[in-house]
């Protein structure tokens, strides 16, 4: 009888121990997952802060380059233009012809410097607005890249925060950069639309495209994705070999 009691005690005690161990493991898993989520959140916050700083530094650098272009190179080119205009009447017809051609090139250069300077300076967004800046860029891309670019804009657009406009503008520049560098396109379609509450900036080209399953994370695309994340936008990318590429940024406003 006593042995039986001992046995029951042993079984009961061991069951309690086993159950305690199981509870311990389950408790550990719960606590660990909680900590993991907290760490993940901290990492995300840190990453966002880092990205924000990076963007601010980039904006500052672009602004400095823009000022440099405008104040130094632009001024210098203007001085050269004045000097050439001064010497032009004193030259022979043949020499005059050469200088006139150079003057034309110089005028184009000054225009390009001004336009580039404007597009690099983030503060100009506040002055001209996102659409005007994109239009200015489109002119430049058409001149430089030989592209035919169609812009279609919805009649009513929401008022966007200045910081978001900077992001959208830089993203549009990144997309155009990719088109000029890789797409080998001849036509580009830019659409800016608003279907409350979604603001959409879409850019499609008729270039060579790529297999988006094989090449989902080029550095340009990673940049776009990160910037979209920062402003809470969605990036929609569609591409296929010889089918062009469509990049759309959608943002709830």
């Amino acid at each position: 009888m006593s042995d039986k009691v001992d046995l029951i005690m042993a079984i009961a005690f061991s069951t309690i121990v086993m159950a305690t161990m199981a509870t311990f493991i389950i408790y550990f898993i719960i606590i660990y997952r909680k900590k993991q989520r907290a760490f993940e959140w901290e990492r995300e916050v840190f990453k966002q802060a880092l990205l924000k700083t990076e963007v601010e530094i980039k904006e500052q650098t672009l602004s400095d380059i823009s000022r440099e272009l405008h104040d130094n190179l632009g001024q210098m080119a203007s001085l050269i233009k004045i000097n050439l205009n001064l010497v032009l009447p004193r030259l022979s017809a043949e020499e005059g012809q050469k200088i006139s051609e150079s003057l034309d090139l110089l005028k184009q250069l000054i225009k390009d410097i001004k336009s580039l300077s404007v597009s690099l300076k983030g503060e100009n967004l506040a002055r001209f607005g996102l659409l005007k800046m994109i239009e200015k860029d489109i002119e430049r891309y058409e001149r430089a890249g030989g592209l035919k670019i169609n812009l279609s804009v919805a009649q009513t657009l929401p008022l966007l925060e200045p910081a978001i406009e900077v992001f959208l503008y830089r993203m549009s520049q990144e997309i155009f950069n990719n088109i000029l560098k890789h797409a080998n396109a001849s036509e580009v379609e830019v659409t800016v639309s608003f279907n409350s509450p979604v603001f959409r900036l879409g850019i499609s080209d008729n270039g060579k495209g790529f297999d988006s399953n094989l090449n989902p994370a080029g550095s340009g695309l990673v940049n776009l994705k990160e910037r979209c994340q920062m402003i809470g936008a969605r990036l929609d990318l569609k591409s296929g070999l010889n089918q062009g590429t469509t990049v759309a940024i959608e943002l709830n406003v």
């Binding site: 042995d3 001992d6 046995l7 042993a10 079984i11 005690f13 061991s14 121990v17 086993m18 161990m21 311990f24 493991i25």
Partner: peptide, 27 residues
């Protein structure tokens, strides 16, 4: 953790019951 905890406790019980009860040893 699970094995050595059960093993540790099992052997304590074993030390306690081995001489008394064969069935405890089996368990």
């Amino acid at each position: 953790f699970i094995f050595y905890s059960s093993n540790f406790i099992g052997f304590i019980l074993y030390n306690e019951y081995y001489k008394l009860e064969g069935i405890t040893f089996t368990w």
